[in-house]
Simulated assay, not measured.
Amino acid sequence: MELYLDSADINEIEEAFKLGFIDGLTTTPTFMHRHGITDIDGAILKLSKMVPVLMIEALGDTAEEIVAEAKRLLSLGLDKNKTVFKIPASLVAAKACKMLRDEGMMVNIHLVYNIQQAYMAMAAGATYVCVLVGRMQDQGYEALKLVDDCVKLVNKYNYDTKIMFSSVRYPEHIKNAIDLGAQNITIPWKIMKNLNNNNFTEIGTHEFVNHTRQMTMVVGEVVGSKNPIIGLDGLVTDASIEMTRYATGAVSVVDADGKLKGIFTDGDLRRQMNTHGKKLLGMKMSDFDLKMPIHVNIDDKLHVAVGVFKEKQVDNIIAVSDGKPAGMLDVQDLVKLEIL
């Protein structure tokens, strides 16, 4: 089924055709008027250079006038092999269609509301017969049955005509067109760009991205720049200053070689204050029975850190390299990556 964009908005046309697989564009004078276009010929010529195939109106009161208008439009610089002339269904349209087709031009008989109009268009050699499904449904017509009848008519008598499903109002129409076997559908950009949206797809994609990141990224790629450190001979006041400077609730305690030996937290500060009072401010890290902090290696895959966060229910983990603190991994670092 050919996929066409239904629009006259230059910006969305440019965006849509970046997809690289849309077959063509349908537009109308009504669309152009709606977007403030006053130079219709100039707009048509510009659009013809932007899209693979362009469908435009060729209007007139007689078949001869319609043919003359089509030729005038071609004279602007349009490519006959990339231009389809749209003509509202009528006996005049059928005659003009035959005349244009005899000269190798492509024709779309549209505003088709019944199978008789479709038959006349096919008999005249129309390249496309266009059923405006949404508009017909608005007016109480059985539009889907008409599309089905048109497709059956093409298949039964082997007409060299494609049935276009147009006036698409919502995603269900795309499913209808597929089920009915229409050979062409033209869709507004606001609907086309949302056709891939699906909550289950989004959930599955999130899981795949999540697990891929956990298995391929290492802690060192995520760990933040916060790395408060104090030596064993550092004072409690020094530890408090470091925590304040880095806006953290803990400071890593290292030995003379920079190796991780423990952690001192704001909780430790409160508990030791209750025990030692003012004396605490002059005490060193080596005066306390420090606990070894929860830590992971900076080269560990992220799934290791995820497991620690889930098991220990903590907000921060010390990341180490060769036994030395290299930074703090915050649970929010993984939340931002949508891993937790």
Rank of each mutant, 00 (worst) to 15 (best):
L73F: 08
L73Y: 12
L73D: 05
L74V: 06
L74K: 08
S75C: 02
S75W: 02
L76V: 07
L76R: 10
G77T: 07
G77H: 11
L78S: 15
D79G: 15
K80Q: 15
N81Q: 12
T83R: 13
T83N: 11
T83W: 12
V84R: 04
F85W: 13
K86G: 05
I87G: 04
I87F: 10
I87L: 08
P88M: 04
A89M: 04
A89V: 03
A89H: 03
S90K: 06
S90Y: 07
L91M: 15
L91N: 10
A93C: 15
A94L: 06
A94V: 09
K95I: 10
K95Q: 13
A96W: 07
A96E: 14
C97R: 11
K98E: 15
L100V: 10
R101C: 09
R101E: 12
R101H: 07
D102W: 12
E103V: 07
E103S: 08
E103H: 09
G104A: 15
M106D: 13
M106G: 09
M106Q: 15
M106C: 09
M106A: 13
N108A: 06
I109E: 02
L111K: 03
L111N: 03
L111V: 04
Y113E: 13
Y113I: 15
N114Q: 09
N114W: 12
I115T: 12
Q116I: 11
Q116E: 13
Q116F: 14
A118I: 01
Y119R: 14
Y119T: 08
M120H: 04
M122I: 04
M122E: 05
A123M: 09
A123V: 12
A124W: 02
A126Y: 02
A126G: 03
A126M: 02
T127E: 10
T127V: 03
T127G: 08
V129K: 00
V129Y: 01
V129A: 00
C130R: 08
C130A: 08
C130N: 07
V131C: 09
V131E: 00
V131T: 07
L132D: 07
V133P: 01
V133R: 00
G134Y: 03
G134T: 01
R135H: 06
M136I: 02
M136K: 01
Q137R: 09
G140E: 06
Y141I: 10
Y141F: 12
E142Y: 05
A143D: 00
A143P: 00
L144I: 05
L144Q: 02
K145P: 00
